[in-house]
Amino acid sequence: MKEKIALIFGNNAYASEIKKNLFEEYETIRIFTLKQERKTQEEKGDGEYFDLSDDWSELTERYDMQNSIAFCALEDDANNIFLCISLRASFEHLKIIALSSDKESAHKMEMAGATKVIPLVQTTADIIVDMLEKPITTHVLHNILYGKGNLKIAQIKVEDNNYFEGKYPSDIEWSRDHGVLVLSIMDEEMNSEFIYSSQAKHHPIKNGDIFVVVGYERDIEDFDKLIRSIE
């Protein structure tokens, strides 16, 4: 069986931070540096070179590209867009995450086939404003998201379970009975809805639904055992 891989395109501080955060999920990480950035690469002595016109078919032969991920973190937005489109043309199901310096490029990257675009300036500005305006919320959510405390967030899939089958989310006392809070429910059509919205209120729980729950690690584990599958 072919192994999955994380491809990081770019040779800069963003790329190295991404690499640091991928070790848990991906055993194989390959870093590609654009030939134009060769000078800096020589200083680091890490990774391989690539050209925007390269053919990526060799990757298909070696890796399971359906379950792999690529990060487009090149310095220049135009190059990043071109890279997104080349990768999408070669791999239909590859998860592509692209970094963009502004919203305009972000939109183009989405059009070029990126699965998720992270606009650097906007994301940093959002974090700054959140820190200033909602410091406690930011702190709590940060700890939940990045696992810096006992509190965790998890995606739990309902599979072959009769416990919730047919019940409505609003009928269940999540926090009292299970010690967790359900933030949202995503159904099989991949429509994510907050549990607090009226749509979610009228959505009977079915097999295949994914719950996004917040809770202490133990409670989440118990809750998971109850419905058997954790993602």
């Binding site: 963003y14 991404i18 970094l99 940093t124 998201l145 998890a154 995606q155 949202s184 996004v212």
Partner: peptide
């Protein structure tokens, strides 16, 4: 560093990430 953490979360739990 923040961007690195954002990508990790997105890779690990994309639905939870989007919800938060």
């Amino acid at each position: 560093e923040l961007i690195g953490m954002v990508t990790r979360e997105f890779v690990g739990q994309p639905v939870a990430f989007e919800v938060i």
